[in-house]
């Protein structure tokens, strides 16, 4: 494995819990790997499975969706819908010949800055172990 491999991970964070959790990690100066590129969405339930599959077929090394903990969703239960879709996404990735381990769904609350950083750290390590996405060009 190439030791200098720097994974590129797309993170979809819901505005109300996990994006706020990422902000709290910032405010608290909790350090985490530079691998993540966060895209703010209103709810984890708005992420179309195609967005995840596209990101990985186009060469992203990993995709992380973060939503509110069950029961805390700002829109009642968008996070639970995201959870159901995550199962479908995993199956789709297998069809596309992409390791399902490149995709992860996590719950992070607005108060969990440390947990957010921990999730990014763990997922980055997981992706480093998987190696670069073969679909990645250049």
């Amino acid at each position: 494995m190439d030791e200098k491999f720097e994974p590129l991970i797309i993170g979809f964070c819901c505005n109300w819990c996990s994006y706020a959790g990422a902000d709290l990690a910032g405010v608290s100066r909790i350090q985490y790997p530079t691998s993540l590129r966060i895209i703010r969405v209103m709810c984890s339930g708005m992420i179309h499975p195609n967005l995840v599959v596209d990101a990985l077929t186009k060469g992203g090394d990993g995709v992380l969706i973060c939503g509110c903990h069950p029961g805390d969703c700002h829109y009642q239960d968008g996070n639970l819908k995201a959870e159901k879709r995550a199962e479908a996404i995993t199956l789709m990735l297998e069809d596309f010949g992409i390791e399902p381990e490149r995709f992860r769904l996590e719950w992070v609350s607005a108060a969990e800055g440390a947990r957010f950083a921990q999730v990014v750290k763990e997922f980055t390590e997981q992706i480093i172990n998987l190696g670069a996405n073969p679909n990645r060009s250049g």
Binding site: L8, I39, I47, N50, D54, S137
Partner: peptide
């Protein structure tokens, strides 16, 4: 989807 997709593409440099 196009707007979020554009962010993804930009992140990946494609």
């Amino acid at each position: 989807l196009e707007q979020i997709g554009a962010q993804v593409d930009a992140a990946l440099g494609v």
